[in-house]
Design a protein around this nucleic acid. Structure first.
Lengths: 142, 142
DNA sequence: GTGTTTGCAAAGTGTTTGCAATTTA
DNA sequence: TAAATTGCAAACACTTTGCAAACAC
């Protein structure tokens, strides 16, 4: 049973990489295992870099950046902009929104169905919608 | 008549600063005149710095940054996050949303009434809403 | 073996800060 | 003249890049 628990994340990561056409290198596997653990995650390059180091699977920060962008390019991740000066990557690539916790800079998913947008303005002349980003800023209640 | 046209922006800028309790220095007046020209503007520090220089009213970039933050602190401006790595400041401090033009990084106001949000999720336990940011990304239509 | 990937260190952006000189009230 | 403000240059945080060494197939 311990064998199964150890191997499932590895198999999942391997499949993700193979399907995306990315060589399953040690570094990519390390990061993929950290990212695609089954839960929706929101990470910065620095956090992911630290997590890899903490597991004795160090990946250089430059490679973490490069890998996050590669994963984004092939659709495994999505970039989220909530903070100028820090880039967040989201493992949930489906349409959805976010809570942004102002106190600690944490992001939390809000399912698409939890926000009902009844009307939107027409797109400007010659323009088409690309996507609608909704960030609900929350802070500690009094 | 030319006199009136030249002086009105100056008077408006002066009033803005006085009301905010900021000393009307040459630099603040220059930036206030550029910002509060009656239209809603979305600027970065670099753009504003260039505009001041172009009018032979140079303000050092450090002062532009400091001034934008001071204006924000006293409520004359609002910060908008749409792009990690670049801070935009908005002269429209009322509640409203934005179009973000993906091609050129330009921001455009969307009046509050043009977006109707019929429902929102409950704020997480112990949290309260701070504000809801809506950014409608648009791109050139085919 | 050959092309891909990695890691380092250097460079690049956008932004902030310490402090002496200047300006404002 | 006392306190606030400015501008410079240096420091900063985050990110990207060039290139030689290491790796995957």
């Amino acid at each position: 049973m311990s064998k199964v628990n150890r191997e499932r994340p590895y198999a999942r990561a391997l499949t993700k990489l193979r399907d995306a056409g990315l060589r399953p290198t040690r570094q990519r596997l390390t990061l993929a295992k950290l990212l695609f653990d089954g839960l929706d995650r929101h990470v910065t390059a620095e956090i992911l870099h630290e997590e890899a180091s903490a597991r004795n699977n160090s990946v250089s920060l430059a490679t973490v950046y490069n890998t996050l962008h590669q994963f984004t390019d092939v659709g495994l991740l999505r970039e989220v902009v909530v903070d100028s000066g820090r880039t967040y990557f989201d493992t949930n690539t489906t349409d959805h929104y976010h809570f942004f916790h102002e106190e600690d800079g944490r992001l939390e998913d809000v399912p698409l169905g939890d926000v009902e947008i009844a009307s939107l303005p027409a797109a400007p002349e010659g323009k088409a919608y690309s996507r609608v980003a909704v960030v609900i800023h929350v802070k500690d209640a009094d």
